[in-house]
Design a protein around this nucleic acid. Structure first.
Lengths: 230, 230
DNA sequence: CGCGAGCTTGACGTTGTTCAACTAGAGTGG
DNA sequence: CCACTCTAGTTGAACAACGTCAAGCTCGCG
């Protein structure tokens, strides 16, 4: 896979985070000046765990997979959707990336200087508080995810993964093309085989509809029960 | 188990968080006025997932287990040691507790009003930034924990758990009395039996020493290798 | 047409859990 | 001080859950 993103600067971000509203026009302008816009193709690595982390990324369009890597395995921690920051956890703390980012779809990313971001937070308190709010919301959600993906048995984990991805990430009862069984396996810490098998079971019980291009949830309530029972 | 903590107010906290240094004397005083000190006995529930969350807790002495509960199972997410805040993740976000806190040892907790805490952050920017720093450090660490406790096989998970608890929580090569096999099981998402068996194996290989009252790490390097291999 | 990626299936072996029985302290009350 | 009970830990055998291997299938793409 070739890492060769095209760069075109100074294009206006469409989806704005609420955080930006607390900035003054002047501050906003400073931020805009430092902004880089980069486009990635599906499957490209956006940032690699262990490399230096000098930017705050804002996902303007598309979906991004966030991997935690360890020796020869990796685990998909979450899928991030557009209009969200990536890399806030590193503010004021880490200088290296703590996870790897991979484009799940074609993606547009705005990148801001981390140092500039931090200094804006120092100057503008309500901006800082908005960031904390973002951080904490995201963190509590991620704890839930990680907990769910480790504590139950396979059926429960997969049911949870389908619900989480459809209801909270893709905001649609159907899981569209780019999410493969491998992705689901990495998300739930299962093998690809087991994912396939249990999807088939769910489909046989008519909890979901399994097509070439999508997985569609038919019986959300029953899936929630499966999830709760483990 | 009876929940009946004794309350004695206005005792001076000994271990101070670095965060407090950024407060003015006057602000510090306001905080002190609202402070409650509560003592819990080993095993007592300090706060229960799902109840309302109106305080920020500061762990002045002892160790606290942080559980995530779900239907009829629970998972030990982390053990928090003294001189740390608990509940920062709820700032500006959640009104209910997202996890259950249980005293691992006898414990002394200072409790501050969450609303007061939030308003101090609004007024004092460097205090807010210190809190962000705390938050992010803790979050990145917790991600690591959750990842480690879900992605490997049992031997690797248990080796990791022993290393994490001795090196980062208890700061000692020996794991002392209060940590039971049940705790280790809940921490690593394994059964109590499996924990016992693998501890026995580790002891037979002389990686650890197994006594009535403690688990002591003998061969840290070999344990790290076990951890890395999964 | 041939190739590779993603998916499916069944057989098989490994990993990890459950159950039941047993041991050894620690705590309690008479 | 002794019997009683409770909890933590240990062990082995049976069983279920899960991953691995091998083979074949489909589809899109060069």
């Amino acid at each position: 896979m070739i890492f060769n993103p095209s760069i075109d600067q100074k294009i206006e971000c469409k989806g704005r985070s609420k955080c930006f509203e607390s900035l003054t026009l002047q501050e906003m302008d400073i931020l805009e000046q430092s902004k880089l816009i980069v486009r990635y193709k599906k499957g490209e690595v956006i940032a690699k765990q262990g490399t230096s982390n000098s930017d705050v990324l804002y996902l303007q369009d598309g979906y991004v997979k966030l991997y935690k890597e360890f020796s020869n395995t990796r685990s998909l921690s979450m899928i991030e959707q557009k209009c969200n920051f990536i890399g806030l956890y590193g503010l004021f703390v880490e200088t290296t990336m703590q996870y790897t980012l991979v484009a799940l779809t074609d993606v547009v990313v705005c990148s801001f200087s981390k140092i500039l971001f931090e200094s804006l937070m120092q100057e503008n308190n309500s901006f800082a508080l908005e960031i904390i709010k973002k951080l904490n919301t995201k963190t509590l959600n991620t704890f839930n995810n990680l907990f769910n993906s480790s504590s139950k048995q396979m059926h429960g984990r997969l049911a949870w993964a389908l619900l989480e991805l459809t209801q909270n990430v893709f905001m649609d009862n159907a899981l569209k093309a780019p999410v493969t069984r491998k992705d689901l396996a990495e998300f739930t810490n299962m093998s690809v085989m087991s994912v396939g098998r249990i999807l088939r079971e769910f489909a046989d019980e008519e909890l979901i509809e399994l097509s070439k291009d999508y997985i569609k949830i038919l019986e959300k309530d029953k899936l929630i029960i499966t999830c709760k029972n483990g």
